[in-house]
Design a protein around this nucleic acid. Structure first.
Lengths: 111, 111
DNA sequence: CTCCTGAATTAGTTGACACTAAATTAGTCT
DNA sequence: AGACTAATTTAGTGTCAACTAATTCAGGAG
């Protein structure tokens, strides 16, 4: 199945880099974090609630993503506001939405 | 950075499923395997050469992807020919190519 | 049948991942 | 100063991922 597609060949040389990028996203909590950040910047504590994670665990996820340049933090008094720093994140979120949020899913959501 | 985008909200409910899917792809070897399969079906031993993996390790990667329905195997005598079974794989490969194989990368490849 | 080959499976090891708990840093407020 | 709060860092733990080595399975050839 899925007819031959030579166009993909170029990707082989970038497989390592692409896999590294995907590793960052291949986690439900981090995906939730990025979904929220795609809607606008927010604080660490709000992210904790959304993802149902302890502050420490959240901070570790954010540190990992900061190191990879996916997100960035902006200090504001006691709080730190995070936002998406790598546009590729937004791109892949849209792609995932197109593949995992079908019309049927959307209807279920409204039911 | 990266202006607010409420469209992504729907994805939050599917984050677990999407993360599970990404976990399968978040590995250089499996990405190489899928790249090759996107160009047409092939045998296990050829995949071993391409990904520089032992036959056992390859078989374990393929088993994992078979279980998740990403690929499927067709027996032909002694050999097993694998191909992509889940069209979402092709979709994401194209997306990755668009993000990791820029025009600059393409030129470097030719240099 | 025996031998061989391609593939799959099993057992065991190593390292990475994701958390908790505790300590630390930095900023605010009285 | 001291107390409080948001966030980060460090240490330790349990689980899972990805390999190697050895075994097993299935098909083809002598």
């Amino acid at each position: 199945m899925t007819s031959p597609d030579p166009q993909i060949q170029d990707l082989q040389s970038q497989a390592g880099e692409a896999a590294g990028f995907l590793k960052q996203l291949a986690n439900e909590k981090r995906l939730l974090i990025l979904c929220r950040l795609a809607m606008g910047e927010t604080t660490v504590s709000e992210l904790c609630e959304i993802a149902d994670l302890s502050q420490s665990a959240m901070s570790q996820h954010l540190a990992k993503m900061r190191t990879e340049g996916l997100v960035s933090g902006r200090k504001d008094g006691l709080q730190v506001h995070y936002s998406i720093a790598d546009p590729r994140c937004v791109g892949i979120l849209h792609h995932l939405k197109s593949q995992f949020c079908t019309a049927a899913d959307a209807l279920e959501g409204k039911a």
